[in-house]
């Protein structure tokens, strides 16, 4: 009994630890004062002003654009790569998987500056394009690592059976193999999207002047003081995701999806 209680208290404390900053940010988004140092009364005006703040809206647009495009590109390249890697002999497969692990195990700052040096040397103009290339690069491993376990559990006889029954190779792949891989591909896509959205360090080194994502914009604002609209925006994003999560978890139909999502590799 006491043990049960202690366990609940412990989980509660960790919960408070993880959520204290988030609650703080939410409260600050309703603060009627430009500085975060003092409480100036309750207001909802930052939420209204947010949508007329062009630089924040531009940064939001850039962030979402980069996240969507890089996640789609990484999913395509990563899935094709997984198909080819799983068909390889052991030696070359090991080489490819070690290369795939490099961006995941290496420090982000090292990945960031290595890409920065590459773009400098090739005299590529820093901007949205360089950020995009970098995000695709660090997203591909997440896709490969979430599709690979699905790939390993495929039963090759099913594909062969489809061929024997007269399906062409393309038909057999898309109607038999692909549906089995889909949960892994989807969870890889979601992971890539989340990672891209939350990235600061690699974007910091590969962005050009004048091009900002939400993260880099926040970082440059740190010295001057964060604009309260930024708190309002992140509160909105957070609440949206929370509602989506609740919907997904409490819709009865989604039971099957949930379990397959877990197999695909949980974030």
């Amino acid at each position: 009994m006491i043990k049960q209680c202690a366990q609940k208290v412990y989980i509660g404390l960790i919960f408070i630890f993880m959520y204290a900053p988030i609650v703080t940010l939410m409260v600050l988004s309703f603060n009627n004062s430009r500085t975060r140092a003092k409480w100036g009364g309750f207001t909802g005006k930052w939420y209204a002003e947010l949508f007329s703040n062009r630089s924040i809206m531009q940064a939001l647009y850039n962030t979402l654009l980069i996240a969507v495009v890089s996640a789609v590109a990484a999913t395509l390249i990563g899935t094709v790569a997984t198909l080819s890697i799983s068909a390889m002999r052991r030696r070359s497969r090991a080489v490819f998987m070690s290369v795939t692990n490099i961006p995941m195990l290496n420090a982000e700052i090292v990945t960031g500056i290595s890409l920065m040096l590459l773009f400098i040397t090739l005299r590529v103009k820093f901007g949205l394009g360089t950020i995009l290339l970098s995000h695709i690069t660090f997203n591909i491993p997440y896709v490969i690592l979430s599709v690979m376990p699905r790939m390993k559990r495929l039963n090759p006889s099913v594909y062969e059976a489809a061929l024997d029954l007269g399906a062409s190779r393309v038909q057999a792949f898309f109607r038999v193999v692909f549906p089995d891989l889909l949960p892994g591909i989807l969870s890889g896509f979601l992971m890539a999207f989340t990672m891209s959205l939350d990235d600061f360090i690699i974007t910091h080194f590969t962005k050009g002047p004048g091009v900002d994502t939400l993260s880099t914009k926040i970082y440059t604002e740190v010295r001057k003081g964060i604009k309260p609209e930024m708190y309002a925006l992140s509160t909105l994003i957070f609440v949206t995701v929370l509602i989506l999560l609740i919907l997904v978890n409490y819709t009865p139909k989604s039971k099957e999806k949930q379990s397959s999502g877990q197999n695909g590799g949980s974030l």
Binding site: M18, Y19, P21, I22, L25, T194, L197, D198, F200, L214, S215, I218, Y219, V222, I226, M230, Y231, S234, I237, F238, V241
Partner: peptide, 8 residues
């Protein structure tokens, strides 16, 4: 929590 920007 990861959906709230980590800098913030």
């Amino acid at each position: 929590p990861m959906w709230m920007n980590f800098l913030l």
